[in-house]
Structure formats: C-alpha cells, structure tokens
Design a protein around this nucleic acid. Structure first.
Lengths: 194, 194
DNA sequence: TCAATATTTAAAGGGGTTTATAAATGGCAG
DNA sequence: CTGCCATTTATAAACCCCTTTAAATATTGA
C-alpha cells in the first residue's frame, strides 16, 4: 500500500514590500512587461528562470505564480527585486514572502469508482457532464481534491507541502475504506501480461 | 520498408431502391427513427449491428454511413430493408448499392516534416494554426490525405479499398523520396533503449 | 447555382469546463 | 455605501466541442 505518487505543480505566493511602487517606472524599464490598467490593475511580468509570473501592484504587493519548488520561488523573487533596482526603484526593508496556495497532481495508481464515491462521501460534487472529475472538499487538511476515474487527482488549496502529501494519503485511505477502488478485471490482468 | 499500417474507418454508400417511400409510414413504425423535415429532408435511422446510420429519402434513395467493412454495409442494408417491410412498405426490385467514399486512418511509422513537405509538394495546404494536419490532394488515386507530424494520416475520398492502400503507399514513397521524414535523433534512440 | 441543413470517421491542435489563491480596480445591486 | 461579482496569473486532471477532408442525399433561402 504505497503512498500515492505526488508532484507539486504550482506554488502561488504573495510578496509584501512595505512601500509603494512606481509601476510606470518599472514598466518603462522592463521591456517584456505587460500593463493594461483598464483591464487589470497590476503589471504582469514573466521571467524564464525560474519560470514564474508576477503580478505587481503599486501598493508594493506582488503575487508570484508558477513555481514548482519553494527554492525557485525565493530565487524568482530575488531576481525580480534585482530587476526593480536596475529599473531605478529604491527598495526599503525586507520583503515578506507567504505561500498562499499549492497545487499538486497525484496518482493513486488504481482506478476510482467516482459514481459510488459521490454517493458515499460527504462534501462531494460530481457532475460528469459538466466536469469529468469528482470534487471533494476535505476538512483536514483543508484542501480541495479533483479526483478522476483514472486514479489521477489534483490537490489544491494547500498552504504547505506537508498538507499536500497528507491530503493524498488521506484521500487514498478514504477511497479504499469505502471500497471505491475499481477491481481490475481478470481479462484486463491477462491483457496486461501479454 | 514495410507498407503503412492502414485501417478502414468509415464507408459511405448510397442505396437506390427505384421507388418512392412513404417516410411517415416508416417513421410511425420504427420508434428509434429521427425525422425533422424542416431541419433535414431525410429520415435518420441508426442501427446497432452492424453499427451504421442511414439517411432515408422519399425518392427511395438512402445514404449509409459508418460501416467499416463492405460486408457490414451489405448486412446493414438488408437489415434496414427488412425493417421497411415490417413497417408495411412493399419493396419493388433489387436495391443498387454504391460505395461513394471510404475514409481510412494510416500510420507511416515515422514522423513527418510537414513544413518541408508543404514547401516541396504540390497541391498542398498547411496552416497549422487553423488545422494541425497537412492536406494533400493526390491525383492518382484521386483522394485527399491529411498528414500529421506524428506520421499518422487520414485518407478520404477513395472509392475502393485498393485506392486506400495505393494512396498510403504512394504517399509514403513521396515523403521518403523528398526527404520529408524526420530522422530520429541520437538522444531519442538512446532514450528508447532504456 | 451556391451555401447551409444532417450523417459518419480518423487525425492533433485549440478552446472551454473545474478547483484554490492572493493582489487591486471596475461595476452593480441592495 | 457596502458587499458582492468580474478582471488577471499559474497549474494539473479529463472530458466536451471545434477545426479539416470526402461523399451521397434533398430542401430552403439567397
């Protein structure tokens, strides 16, 4: 009964600089930046390594998305701040970085009976004609899981990597406990042998 | 240099009964039939075995689609005519069945350089942002091929199975001759060994 | 006479669907 | 005037639909 295979796919974090920013100054000095204030109030900056995207607001707050490792997130923030300095921004104080959401994919390694799980489990939403995955709102840890019949899952809403792993294992146990795992048919097994 | 792997996917044929049909009579006696004359002038009848769909017109002409084998096409026509008789239709004369189009899928087994093929070959259309396949109008046999970078193809417009096979082989030779086959990189080969 | 209307079928892209999450700004309703 | 919505970003999962091609059929509208 191995733990589900889990992969962190996206870390969303906020960075607070405790100072206002001159968005026009930054926009003028970083060519690859996007800025359509009438469409969205923040600047949009994409950097390649580490590959992340930053939403930058004049309040001095930023949203960083796309990192797959905490280490990359930190590196990306440092890199962005260095770009600010090169643009003529004077930084005051230490930036505060806070992880707001971690999205991960996981594989249970067994197929799941979604229809049955939807009937037995609480806090479940399953409307296959609208979306193929079963949506499960877990209380502890407080995350949301999208479970597919293939046994693949998406875990989102976690605030730490530990919550991600805990959610995956808890979900696996819940499904096994309620007998929502598809038994591999004899024909299928024979087929896989050939 | 094995021939491309080919699979017939759909045979479209017409059936001429040489008599007019009372569509209302047929519709009233075959529950699973669809009929919306204001939307389309023909009756739509789907049968499960062999799985085909028939468009039935009051002129006594029909269009049969979905068969994957000529034999299934014949069986389906017989089955439909038997349903007509049970509905109270009196059949006169022998139906004439004519294959109008054969659609097939094929696999060259090698990846294709579409951009290069589009430049070198005549009667080619390739607009990847509109459709991922290269469209090639072949003269002999007179068919149209949709060629994908994966080496998979769709052959349509053929009037016989022989034309399908001939088109697949001709296309393969044309691509090889004009050096539009992707060479597998050394890294790829090494990767496939592991 | 030409373009829909409708049917089937494969290929591989594109788009959309759902979930969480922060930021700041607009609009709308109560 | 205060709450709500939506705007934008990233990301996975797996479905849906659309794109294109050929062919016959028949009916309506331009």
């Amino acid at each position: 009964m191995a733990d589900p295979e889990v992969k962190i796919e996206n870390i969303v974090a906020t960075v607070i600089l405790n100072q206002t920013l001159d968005l026009d100054l930054i926009e003028q000095n970083i060519p690859e930046i996007e800025y359509n204030p009438e469409q969205f109030p923040g600047l949009i900056l994409r950097i390649d390594s580490p590959k992340v995207t930053a939403l930058i607001f004049k309040s001095g707050k930023m949203v960083i998305t796309g990192a797959k490792k905490t280490n990359d997130l930190i590196k990306a923030v440092k890199r962005i701040l260095r770009m600010f300095i090169k643009s003529g921004v004077t930084l005051v104080g230490k930036p505060r970085i806070q992880i707001q959401n971690i999205v991960a994919s996981a594989n249970l390694g067994v197929e799941v009976l979604l229809e049955k799980a939807a009937l037995i489990l609480e806090n479940t939403m399953y409307e296959p004609e609208q979306f193929p995955g079963l949506i499960f709102r877990m209380d502890e840890p407080k995350v949301v899981l999208l479970i597919f019949s293939s046994g693949k899952m998406v875990i989102t809403g976690a605030k730490s990597e530990e919550e991600v792993y805990e959610a995956a294992t808890t979900m696996y146990n819940l499904l096994v406990e309620h007998d929502c795992i598809k038994k591999v048919s004899e024909e299928k097994l024979l087929g896989e042998l050939s």
